[in-house]
Design a binder for these strands. Structure first.
Lengths: 193, 193
DNA sequence: TTTGTATTGGAATGATTGTTCCAAATAAAA
DNA sequence: TTTTATTTGGAACAATCATTCCAATACAAA
């Protein structure tokens, strides 16, 4: 006697992610969401709880997706310097190709909701620590297989590259000039040499 | 017969700057401003026009102030590497000491109001170009006086350091661990050596 | 003191905010 | 077809939003 779901929760969540990503938490209204998600207002509350809960779910989806992409890239690309280069240049081109200039959802959320939202702040801290480790482990992999000088500090370099990555995500919103930013990437990656 | 101003426009603007800086444009209400600025609602509209105009004035004040600080630092510090180091570490300690974790008003505004606000976008692009030039000229100064290898590209290095600077402003909001970030600074400044 | 302006408190505006509720419609299982 | 659960449109809610207006007050120049 139970019915099957009429709409795909994941699809709806992806649309919510796009909206929050583009406009941020405060500038996105429930009316915006109801208009664009394709489901009813009541269903929205039934399924996701409310605006805050929906935002957190959408944000979590973004983090999972982008983390997975980076993990796959780092796993498939054996040349560590090349792996970072692809990651950075992908971010630059993503910003160039996106007419919305949404930038990075994590960076946007960091600057919009800190201070004020302690729950999000905890998530962001955890996310930063994960990314930091991900970067550092990849550098360590390069050291282990002899691509990178073993005298280098993997954690230090990992955090430095992650910092540069965040800076690129900010600047690409203002001026997505690919050639200039790609030179920045090359210069930044010189810490690996 | 004309009267003298009862309140200091500059003081009021500074308080508005603090509020917008901490909470952003959308999360700051006119009621917030009326409550904290110390002047009447009607006077606020008379003097500054409205929320958007007030934000732009407050934002302009921030840009002027911080640009002036950087210019002074670069002018007084003859050792270029040391100048950048002081600038970066000052930003880190500023974030550490600020319980509000307001971060950088320019970075916050970039990620909040792009896309959407074309007027602000133009201001931000101009600001980025100015900062880029400021950084590059300082690097060039180091090349001119022999502190930095003349084979280096001042513009490239300037933009790279500015990018790293923006990244630090983002990460310092999430986790203002001074020692780790200072290592990042040292590593980033190795592009000058 | 008179005059003219700056500033005030507070009400009022209309629009939008997030959220809740409900009867009607819909659709898949029994 | 009947049953049961999902989804819908739309109204209603109280709260807040940015903005405007006005009569009363405060204050400095004439």
């Amino acid at each position: 006697m139970p019915r099957t779901k009429q709409f795909d929760k994941q699809e709806v969540l992806e649309k919510a992610m796009e909206l929050f990503w583009e406009k941020g938490f405060h500038a996105t209204s429930m009316q915006d969401l109801v208009t664009h998600l394709g489901i009813n207002r009541a269903s929205l509350y039934d399924t996701f709880g409310g605006k805050e809960a929906l935002f957190e779910s959408a944000f979590q989806l973004y983090r999972q997706t982008s983390t997975k992409h980076i993990q796959q890239l780092f796993k498939s690309e054996q040349n560590v310097r090349q792996g970072f280069k692809v990651l950075f240049e992908k971010a630059i081109e993503e910003s160039l190709n996106d007419p919305c200039k949404k930038g990075c959802f994590v960076v946007n959320t960091t600057t919009e909701l800190i201070p004020g939202d302690v729950k999000i702040q905890r998530i962001l801290l955890e996310n930063k620590n994960n990314a930091e480790t991900l970067f550092a482990d990849y550098v360590q992999k390069g050291i282990a297989n002899g691509q990178i000088d073993s005298a280098k500090d993997a954690k230090e370099i990992g955090l430095m590259l992650f910092t540069l990555f965040n800076g690129i995500r900010v600047l690409a919103k203002v001026d997505s000039n690919p050639s200039k930013l790609k030179k920045v990437v090359n210069l930044g990656l010189s810490v690996l040499a």
